[in-house]
Amino acid sequence: MEKEKKIILFDGVCNLCNNSVQFIIKRDKKDIFRFAPLQSEIGEKLVAERRIDTTRIDSIILIEPEVAYYTKSEAALRISKSLSGLWPVMSVFLGLPSGLRDCIYDWVAKNRYQWFGKREECMIPSPELKDKFLAFSTKSDK
């Protein structure tokens, strides 16, 4: 694993999460991020190493290797800081109390399958994008 790359763990069967990954890839002009579904072997390994309870956090985790990891709204806003365009402006919301930010984040996360739908299996990246993903298979592929 490339230690200088930040890792985004996402819900691989969530349409909103998959669309968010595509959104990030298009705006990751400095090639900062690598991705893995939470349901993948590497996703589960990274979560276990950090003792993250995925029954409480199951939508997005940002890992800065050898630095820290971030969840929920903090992960999303820290990701926005590294994107091209005006998206870094979103990081001003880091100044709001995390309880308020996470309340809104949790509401969207709780309803994401109902609003945006759910896939039967994790997205398989195109050949052009496969280097951005740390894992291609889920447990159900075994």
Rank of each mutant, 00 (worst) to 15 (best):
L100A: 14
K132C: 05
K132V: 03
W115Y: 01
S84F: 11
I61R: 02
R101P: 06
R27F: 07
D131N: 15
D28K: 03
C103L: 15
L16Y: 00
P97S: 10
L100C: 15
S59D: 04
K118R: 15
V108W: 01
K130R: 13
V108N: 01
V108F: 03
Y70G: 11
E64H: 13
S84E: 11
S59V: 05
R101F: 10
T54M: 09
R51D: 13
F116R: 00
D28C: 04
N19Q: 11
L96N: 09
S98N: 11
Q114P: 05
T55L: 13
Q22R: 13
I25A: 08
K132F: 04
P97Q: 08
I42W: 00
I63G: 01
K72V: 05
E44N: 12
E120V: 13
G85I: 07
R78H: 14
Y69S: 08
D106Y: 01
T71N: 12
R34A: 05
D106C: 00
D28W: 04
S59L: 08
G12M: 03
Y113R: 00
S98K: 11
R78G: 09
S80Q: 08
M123C: 11
R50K: 07
Q39E: 06
I52W: 05
D106N: 07
A68T: 15
N18I: 07
E66R: 10
R112Y: 02
D58A: 11
C103M: 15
I60R: 00
R51G: 12
I124V: 14
D11W: 00
C17K: 04
S84V: 09
R78W: 11
L100D: 14
R51W: 11
K30Y: 14
I79L: 09
D102N: 12
I57W: 06
G85Y: 08
Y70C: 12
A75M: 01
M123D: 09
F93E: 05
I25T: 08
E74A: 10
A75S: 05
K29L: 12
D102L: 06
A36G: 06
I52L: 09
D58Y: 12
Q22G: 12
L38A: 05
F23I: 06
R78N: 14
S91Q: 13
L16D: 01
V21H: 00
L38Q: 03
S59Y: 03
K26D: 10
I124G: 05
L86Q: 15
G117A: 07
K110I: 02
L77D: 00
N15H: 09
K130L: 10
S73T: 01
W107L: 00
E64G: 09
A76W: 01
S91N: 13
P37T: 04
L16T: 02
G12A: 07
N18D: 09
K72L: 06
F93G: 08
E74S: 12
K45L: 14
V92C: 13
P37C: 05
L62V: 09
V13P: 03
L94M: 10
G99I: 09
R27C: 07
R112L: 02
R50Y: 05
W115M: 03
C17Y: 02
I32C: 04
S59G: 07
V13W: 00
L86P: 15
I52F: 08
G117T: 07
K30T: 13
L46H: 01
E128S: 14
E74W: 07
Y69M: 08
G43P: 01
S73N: 03
F10Q: 02
R51S: 15
Y69R: 08
P88V: 12
G43D: 00
C17N: 02
R27P: 04
I57K: 06
I124K: 10
W107M: 03
D31G: 11
